[in-house]
């Protein structure tokens, strides 16, 4: 069971309260009708899928209900940080905070 820190509730809670919502910081195109097929492909389908730190969205569904961003290492499944949606992309590398 993963333990996830909700940056709004400021509590570390079990995975069962949260839902995963895919890769973070994928900006919706400002002018969709101007996009080429290649840009649409990249926006809709191509994902970084890294082996290591991954910027991703989670939702505290059975809590405050809000979306937030996280950086999780996809090899160890450890969360490196979480931060509210709307904040800029967390820079890497992230030093893990002491529990």
């Amino acid at each position: 069971m993963l333990l996830i820190h909700c940056p709004y509730c400021d509590e570390t809670l079990p995975e069962a309260e949260f839902t995963y919502a895919g890769e973070a910081h994928i900006a919706r195109p400002a002018d969709p009708s101007a996009l080429s097929d290649e840009e649409w492909e990249s926006y809709l389908f191509i994902r970084s899928n890294p082996r290591g730190p991954h910027h991703e969205r989670w939702r505290h569904l059975h809590g405050c209900g809000r979306f937030f961003n996280a950086v999780r290492d996809t090899v160890s499944d450890r969360f490196l940080t979480t931060y509210p949606a709307g904040q800029p992309r967390a820079a890497l590398p992230i030093k893990e905070a002491a529990e």
Binding site: L2, Y20, E56, S76
Partner: peptide, 13 residues
């Protein structure tokens, strides 16, 4: 599992 991972493990829930 609901999240992407390379852990070859997965969660108990």
């Amino acid at each position: 599992d609901q999240y992407t991972s390379y852990s070859q493990r997965g969660g108990l829930p």
